[in-house]
Design a protein around this nucleic acid. Structure first.
Lengths: 185, 185
DNA sequence: CACGGAAGTCAACAGCTGTTGGCATATGCT
DNA sequence: AGCATATGCCAACAGCTGTTGACTTCCGTG
């Protein structure tokens, strides 16, 4: 097996890349810095991934892995959804990479829209009482806004929350956006 | 008046800088590109503002100019607040500059926290029924999340909204965060 | 008109960037 | 063992970055 060792260094580069991209964003995260974190030569980063952009593409591959909520009582759907999202964001930093970079990099923004359209919106469509696209959009504003304030901007009152508190505060809003009548409030 | 002409070109540089920073973020917006937009030599940008960072600091100086809501009926506070925020964001792109850049630039993030702490939180504190810091933080997640999805990520369902629709959808959430009991939802 | 200072141009700098090719080394197979 | 190939390092490249200093041009004032 000639592949065994290479796969480990490849994974090391990817891990270092995720951390750097997540901390610094696409432009400031240099190939040299990523290579140094992975204790390897910068040339190897290019050899393994072709280019910085392809490395980023792989590092930002994000699967939201939404749970199946078809069996969940309607009243608990919001809580279930939010709990999953927060847990998912806390456990790995791939999403932070994507969110941070999407602010300044158009291809990352496009990928973010793609995640929204293919992963979030379809699931929410089954839960919304009407106007699924609009409701999914509203949910996104609250969900991504929370992630932005907590992980990127790090607003003190938002970082101070425990995950459970965050879920308790956000869930009613999500439920509201999915089910409340929208025209006259 | 030796100053008159210089002030015009200075304003021109600042306008070009705001546009470039807003469109590309701090790193990708180069001094040379800003200078080209302002039809001037890159050296002048430095001469007028000292450095790229100081230019950014001036370009991202943002005053949220929240209205006085002390005389507004409690039921309409949310709507008034949101309407003002959305109108303010639509009319000038300084806020977009700041938001976009805050994602990848720590000093811009710090400035964002400062705007939150000195401009948004104090006003909201007078409107919250309790726990003002927490409630201001929750309001920020929704408000900034909307701005992120609409102006930066440009999620189709969110950009499709008219300003009035956006206000109508967000206002109840803001009111909820300011006034609803928080412990058991 | 002559002068002084402001306004602007030009070329160049040092440093960093992603990327490439050549060369050494180690590793696994026969 | 000996070869082939994968793995890695080194040095260098061309291009871009923010920034600087010297030089020219313009303009209002004495």
């Amino acid at each position: 097996m000639a592949q065994r060792k290479s796969e480990r260094t490849r994974a090391g580069i990817l891990a270092a890349a995720r951390e750097r991209f997540g901390a610094d964003g696409y432009e400031r995260a240099t190939v040299r810095a990523i290579a140094a974190d992975a204790a390897i030569d910068p040339a190897m980063v290019i050899r393994y991934f072709g280019s910085k952009e392809k490395l980023f593409a792989e590092a930002a591959e994000f699967d939201i892995r939404l749970p199946d909520v078809s069996g969940v009582p309607a009243a608990e759907v919001g809580t279930t959804l939010v709990r999953h999202l927060v847990a998912r964001w806390e456990e790995d930093d791939t999403f932070r990479v994507l969110l941070r970079t999407a602010a300044t990099n158009e291809s990352a923004a496009e990928r973010m829209r793609h995640v929204f359209a293919t992963q979030l919106a379809p699931t929410l469509a089954g839960l919304a009482v009407d106007q699924p696209a609009l409701r999914a959009g509203l949910v996104a504003t609250q969900a991504l806004g929370f992630a932005l304030c907590r992980y990127i901007l790090q607003l003190p009152p938002v970082t101070a929350l425990t995950a459970d508190q965050a879920v308790a505060f956000l869930a009613p809003t999500i439920t509201h956006y999915l089910t409340a009548p929208l025209s006259a409030e």
